[in-house]
């Protein structure tokens, strides 16, 4: 499905629920699409910004992992949960509480290393989520342990719940912060093709964790 098609689907899905987190799902669609299309069998994807669950569900539907009926059951009492939970297709860990997904990714990466297993762990973060101190605890842990199979993608959409990110709490210089924490940083416009190229590019870098900052420019 085209990017426009996914967007239409997302809006149809969220219109009965007062456009629940519509904006942060819209900006996340291209990221989720690029990651899920890039994901190999051994790879794990963590949606740390769990409120972008609608975007994730739309992509699961496109991949044939959720039916149309399931998609439109969003947030219905027995339907798809409003934030992702463990047990859904491709969801290894529940989220909804911000700031925890990167630590979980590190744990999976450490286990894979101990077991000599391959596979990458993709973590989708929000820019507002970077306010959480635990993100930076986890950023230190990942670089200290050289977890180069951890790839974070920041949905840099410049908005968080109650306002513009720079008005709520200044985030910039985001790239320098990650670099200072020992990460390889790639900045791209938030478009699926650009993100996909960045994912391929960072896979070649060894010895440290990688973060792609996907800037919303529309």
């Amino acid at each position: 499905m085209s990017e426009v098609g996914s967007m239409v689907k997302l809006r149809e899905m969220l219109s009965p629920v007062s456009n629940f987190h519509l904006d942060s799902s819209e900006t996340c669609l291209g990221i989720v699409a690029a990651v899920l299309r890039r994901k190999g069998k051994e790879d794990v994807v963590i949606l740390s910004k769990g409120h972008s669950a609608p975007a994730f569900y739309v992509m699961l539907h496109e991949l044939g992992l959720l039916s149309e009926e399931e998609l439109y059951s969003f947030a219905d009492i027995d339907g798809l949960p409003s934030h992702v939970i463990r047990g859904l297709p491709l969801i290894e860990v529940s989220s909804g509480s911000l700031g925890q997904g990167l630590s979980v990714a590190n744990g999976i990466a450490l286990a894979k290393r101990m077991d000599g297993e391959g596979g990458r762990i993709y973590v989708i973060l929000g820019d507002g989520e970077l306010d959480e101190g635990q993100i930076w605890e986890a950023a230190m842990t990942a670089s200290h342990h050289g977890l180069d199979n951890v790839i974070a993608i920041v949905d840099r959409n410049y908005f968080q719940l109650t306002g513009k990110t720079e008005e709520i709490l200044n985030k910039e210089p985001i790239a320098d912060k990650w670099r200072a924490f020992g990460w390889e940083v790639v900045e791209v416009p938030n478009r699926e093709g650009e993100i996909e190229r960045a994912l391929r590019e960072v896979e070649k870098i060894r010895g440290k964790p990688k973060v792609i900052i996907a800037r919303w420019e529309r």
Partner: peptide, 28 residues
């Protein structure tokens, strides 16, 4: 030593990292 993980003074990171290890089949 290969099964001991140091995360520094960060209990929150430690608990969530343990969650990841458990997801991957370890007993943290």
């Amino acid at each position: 030593p290969e099964r001991f993980i140091q995360v520094g003074i960060s209990e929150q990171d430690m608990v969530s990292t343990a969650a990841g290890l458990a997801i991957a089949g370890k007993i943290p």
